[in-house]
Simulated scan of single mutants.
Amino acid sequence: MDETIRLSSVGKVHGSPPNEVIALRDVTLAFPPASLTAVMGPSGSGKSTLLQCAAGLDRPTTGTVTIGDVDLAGLGETALTRLRRDRIGFVFQAFNLLPSLTAEQNVGLPLRLAGRRPGRAEIQDALAEVGLADRAHHRPGEMSGGQQQRVAIARALVTRPAVIFADEPTGALDTTTSRNVLTMLRGLVEHRGQTIVMVTHDPLAASYADAVVFLADGAVADTLAAPTPDVVAARMTRLETSC
């Protein structure tokens, strides 16, 4: 497969004339397997809408989104929910762990929601992939922010998804912890072949990606391969100045 996800001429409009708001404009993008792509742009540029449409959380007004060979437009709500559960992982800035559950219980939650009884081995494997095999019985309040985010990543990994969508995954972390999490995400791409799409505002985080997609006013304004923090920051400054 040449691409894990493809967006073809995707547009998203909120509301109706004369009060409509255009969130995405004719966006065409492909995300290949075993890649980490960063999505950046000024506030209001469409980053969150792009992630929501690509992940099947929202339906585009125009265009198509395909994951593998599945066109999301052809799925009813039940089938779309099943696809998100089985083939998509999510990581958020706020971790979204249940405080009363241990790390292993949080990781196993997507499997339980799918009607499966989680196997201890698969949960341990997911925790081991993020370096937390020894924290399985700890609750979120007993772990640092970085450890909690790694539990959240293990939870995203446990279903063996085709793609992980990460929305500002280092936004709540300090610089050192952010680097550790980003290094781990990079390792998942290189050693596991995971596809990751990461929305971020941080040029340092974007430098861990294979490519950066820059959005402005709902459209793709630029792309950058082999990014460095300085070049990413310069492109962002130019976009913010022109908006």
Rank of each mutant, 00 (worst) to 15 (best):
S9M: 00
G11K: 06
K12E: 07
K12R: 15
V13K: 00
S16N: 09
S16A: 13
S16V: 10
P17R: 11
P17C: 04
E20S: 13
R25D: 00
R25H: 02
D26P: 05
V27F: 08
V27K: 06
A34S: 06
L36C: 10
T37G: 01
T37Y: 05
V39R: 02
M40I: 05
G41A: 03
G41I: 09
G41L: 08
S45T: 12
K47H: 11
K47I: 11
L50F: 14
L50D: 07
L51W: 09
Q52S: 13
Q52D: 14
C53L: 03
C53E: 06
A54D: 08
A54N: 12
L57M: 15
D58G: 07
D58R: 05
T61D: 11
G63V: 10
T64L: 10
T64G: 07
T66S: 15
I67D: 03
D71A: 07
A73R: 11
G76T: 01
T78R: 14
A79Y: 00
L80V: 04
T81R: 07
L83W: 08
D86E: 15
D86R: 12
R87H: 12
G89V: 04
F92Q: 05
Q93P: 12
A94G: 07
A94Q: 13
F95D: 05
N96I: 07
L97C: 04
L97N: 00
L98N: 05
P99N: 08
S100P: 02
L101C: 10
L101G: 09
L101H: 11
E104G: 00
E104A: 02
G108Y: 03
L109D: 01
L111F: 12
R112E: 15
L113E: 08
R117A: 13
G119A: 14
R120V: 15
R120D: 15
Q124V: 05
L127I: 02
L127H: 01
E129H: 08
E129L: 14
V130Q: 08
A133V: 06
A133P: 00
D134C: 06
A136T: 11
A136R: 12
H138T: 05
P140C: 01
G141M: 11
E142N: 10
E142R: 12
E142H: 09
